[in-house]
Nucleic acid binder design. Structure first.
Lengths: 194, 194
DNA sequence: GTAATTATGTGACGATCGTCACAGGGTAAA
DNA sequence: TTTACCCTGTGACGATCGTCACATAATTAC
């Protein structure tokens, strides 16, 4: 659908100046793709060779630690999901990325993207801005654990990222907040009573 | 000292290809500087306009929450310290960066650096690699809280980042690990008995 | 060298958390 | 409709944690 591509262009232009010419060239590296619910965007052990722009639906990153699922991130419409260290450093991914709903995305091919970035400075600048956004968000969530209690972290999500609470089940959210499912259930109960 | 500059060049070349010519140009944006113990590299409320390459000594980033110090990062020799969202996004910093020992660093001036990056692709590439490293590290530490208990986080530091434990006092480290000072003291005691 | 400051350990105690277990509600597939 | 599965809540209980308090060791400043 042309709609997904239009959305991506809007997203890109919200980040950095981007001419129509750069856009036409960037398209070489782009492929629209549908993922079914529970389909993998990236599997543990693979080397990540794509960025995934999410147009519709959402996905999550998770570690499988001795059979226990630990969710580390949720990615919604108008965001980019990837494994930054695997994508940039060529290392095998330690975690999975999986669609939590039927998902429409636009896949950035790494090789083509790098070739273009070497030639077109606007595409290069786009890449840097994406990484910077990613780094900023990681830092934000990392600090949550150092600055706040579990209850305060939940409050933070409610005010700053209400979408996560609306769309992600409590069971899925608990490991992201670093607590057991039952604990999150009780924190929520405590909060309602105040 | 020329030594600090030599170390920086080695560091840069460990990240990305960097010609002698690029290096001569990059020097325009660099200033060597000494910081006394407890001197600020960056203060809360300021806009961060520098990257700090650390040649000797170490520093930390911390939030002051109602007078309580919460340490969020430690940066040692051969690392770059900065506030990535303030540096890249022009926002006021929410935290401080302060020298924990007498510190020798090389300061990258943002304006000059950006001007150079626009012209020299090797300098541009260096910038992207620095941001990527930063993002990878933030992700790593962020996931520690989602995957492991306080005791396991301490173990992780011991094996992966022994330098932090050797040089940072327990009191300083506790908030970085997301626990109270007394708790960290007891965790350490528990571990010795095993 | 002495005083002041900072770092560490530890006891006590209440709060919170993780785990196991089980019950009920909701949804989707057969 | 019935069955199966997932999600949420909750009780019990032991483990861990945060806080306050205080003692002592180590470091730093004068």
């Amino acid at each position: 659908m042309a709609v997904a591509m239009d959305n991506l262009l809007k997203y890109i232009r919200s980040l950095t100046a981007f001419s129509d010419e750069s856009w036409e060239l960037l398209k070489i590296a782009l492929t629209e793709r549908e993922f079914k619910k529970n389909e993998f965007l990236l599997k543990e052990g693979e080397v990540c060779s794509s960025l995934f722009y999410i147009d519709k639906g959402y996905c999550k990153s998770y570690y499988d630690i001795d059979g226990v699922v630990k969710n580390t991130g949720f990615f919604f419409e108008n965001e980019i999901a990837t494994n930054i260290s695997s994508f940039g450093g060529g290392k095998r991914s330690e975690f999975n990325i999986i669609a939590c709903e039927p998902l429409t995305g636009i896949v950035f091919d790494k090789d083509k993207l790098f070739r273009l970035a070497g030639q077109i400075s606007e595409i290069d600048s786009l890449g840097r801005n994406c990484i910077r956004l990613f780094a900023t968000k990681q830092e934000e969530f990392s600090n949550l654990f150092k600055l706040y209690s579990a209850q305060e972290r939940l409050q933070y999500l409610e005010t700053r990222y209400p979408e996560i609470l609306q769309r992600v089940s409590l069971s899925q959210l608990s490991s992201f907040l670093g607590v057991a499912r039952e604990t999150l259930s009780r924190i929520r109960k405590r909060r309602i009573l105040l």
